[in-house]
Design a protein around this nucleic acid. Structure first.
Lengths: 164, 164
DNA sequence: TCAAATCTTTACTTTTGAGTCAAGATTGCA
DNA sequence: TGCAATCTTGACTCAAAAGTAAAGATTTGA
């Protein structure tokens, strides 16, 4: 379970914009420099984010990119959904080994794990907004640890999960 | 955020063993056939799982693989930790763009997300055992949805997260 | 209108992960 | 002992993701 380069860099570019005052915009060279990536790469990412409606691009002198919506209203789950390139829906069609379709037809425990995991991740991400990533680590840490703690408690109280 | 081929197939091979009666073992050709992957690929995966101590391998005629511990005692979080090839600890050393180290030194909101996400996933997985994956989808679904529901409730009650 | 600044798009190259192959080592059985 | 079944290991090939490059399109301002 790993975040892809596209997800990470794309998110970072958005956070740069979120940290820029509302009436200003950032150009491709600026974004590239601030994130330590090439201008070409930044260009591709911003193109994706523009297509998805997160940013507005203006061409010509004095052009650049800015967020289309307030950073507070953009949740990470939306962003990641756009930046990740495969859908969970299609899962049974990938990882089919040497065959055309997955050997596990019908009732499949693995599938549940994949889907369940994706839900857990999306749920966690839906509780964090772009705006929260601008400042220090504290706010984010707090959010995740709250989710963390509660799940833990639930599992212990329930008791069945691990020792079933 | 995506599960790798190694994680998926490795897990599936283990589930095959978990579904085999305690005194029996499965050979490489058997595992490969049941999961629809090549024998070579299965060999590599089982070698990893053997090295990590999840399975015991016996060579020679009548040999094969079997679980080293009861399936009920093996949690998915342990398994995934072994099958995923990069550590979260090393995160700031990957995705450094064209530079040698990440441009975000010190206090970094992105890092929190990566680490927090990993914790959420590991926590969810620690509540599912190999044994639970053998049967139908129901048990797994239940577990994940329980985690899901509780996080959701917590966020709503708290209220700050999304609309801060 | 023209040139400079900027985004857009497609094609190409590089890198990394996935998968295969083949030779080697160990065990059981006749 | 010797052969057949089985796991082990490292090198190799292939495919997909990541990143780069270059030509094109749009806007602003002189």
């Amino acid at each position: 379970m790993k975040i892809s380069a596209q997800e990470e860099y794309g998110l970072r570019c958005l956070v740069q914009l979120a940290g820029t005052s509302k009436d200003e915009s950032l150009t491709l060279p600026q974004i590239a420099e601030r994130e330590g990536i090439s201008q070409s790469n930044a260009g591709k990412l911003m193109w994706l984010l523009n297509k998805a409606g997160f940013v507005t691009a203006t061409r010509g002198t004095k052009g650049g990119y800015s967020l289309s919506r307030p950073a507070e209203d953009i949740s990470l789950s939306e962003v990641i959904k756009v930046l990740e390139d495969d859908e969970v829906e299609a899962h049974c069609g990938s990882y089919t080994g040497v065959l055309d379709s997955c050997v596990h037809t019908g009732d499949c425990g693995i599938r549940s794990v994949i889907v369940g995991l994706h839900e857990v991740v999306q749920n966690a991400l839906s509780n964090v907004s772009l705006a929260q990533l601008v400042g220090t680590e504290k706010k984010v840490d707090e959010t995740f640890h709250r989710i963390q703690g509660l799940s833990q408690v639930a599992m212990i109280k329930d008791g069945r999960a691990v020792s079933e």
